[in-house]
């Protein structure tokens, strides 16, 4: 292995790349987004998700309490107790496989990106990161002030020093692998609702 490593690195040193090979100074903000909130919402909708703006967590609770997604869900794992109590404690399970039948998971997201509707979810507080992908449905709760315009500003805000796993999630799981027909719900969540609080 060390021999291979040295051999590869030596070979790579003999590259023929010409021209300016310095690291570029750059900034490419996604200009032209006049309304972050509206853009964020419309992109989420365009990728098959749903986005609701609510004044506070109490309002969030009201929005989803009567919703179909909550009433239809038998097994609910909530990490945002103010929004819904939930009836499944994933943290108490020793193995992620035990979370295989979760219908709905509610977690906090740290950021929303207006240019692509993605929500940054730091999975480290969860005992089982697999929950995010096993759950049939997903509700992501973010703060209104955490919507940023673009990926450049998103990455500027994410701290990787202690992070073990983090995800940008943009809408539900999907595939178009059969004749380019879009089907929502491939392996991960079949629906994603983003609740923007404040």
């Amino acid at each position: 292995m060390t021999d291979t490593r040295r051999l590869i690195l030596d070979r790579l040193r003999k590259h023929a790349i010409a021209g300016d090979t310095s690291y570029p100074a750059y900034s490419h903000p996604h200009a032209g987004i006049s309304d972050l909130r509206r853009s964020f919402q419309s992109v989420i909708e365009s990728v098959g998700g749903e986005c609701r703006y609510v004044a506070d967590l109490e309002a969030a609770r009201k929005v989803i309490s009567g919703s179909e997604i909550l009433t239809a869900a038998k097994t609910i794992c909530s990490h945002v107790k103010e929004v819904a109590e939930g009836n499944f404690d994933a943290e108490a399970k020793s193995d992620a496989h035990q979370c295989a039948d979760v219908d709905l998971t509610i977690v906090r997201g740290a950021l929303g990106v207006a240019e692509n509707g993605a929500v940054w979810v730091n999975a480290d507080p969860l005992r089982h990161r697999a929950l995010l992908f096993l759950s049939e449905n997903l509700i992501l709760v973010i703060e209104g002030r955490d919507i940023v315009p673009d990926m450049e500003s998103a990455y500027a805000r994410i701290d990787f020093t202690r992070l073990r796993s983090g995800y940008f999630i943009s809408g539900p799981s999907k595939t178009a692998d059969i004749e380019q027909c879009l089907v929502i719900g491939a392996h991960g969540a079949k629906s994603v609702l983003v609740l923007v609080v404040g």
């Binding site: 992109v43 993605a118 992908f133 943009s170 809408g171 539900p172 799981s173 999907k174």
Partner: peptide
Amino acid sequence: PISAYTSH
């Protein structure tokens, strides 16, 4: 605009 999942 981005893949549904971008995992780090």
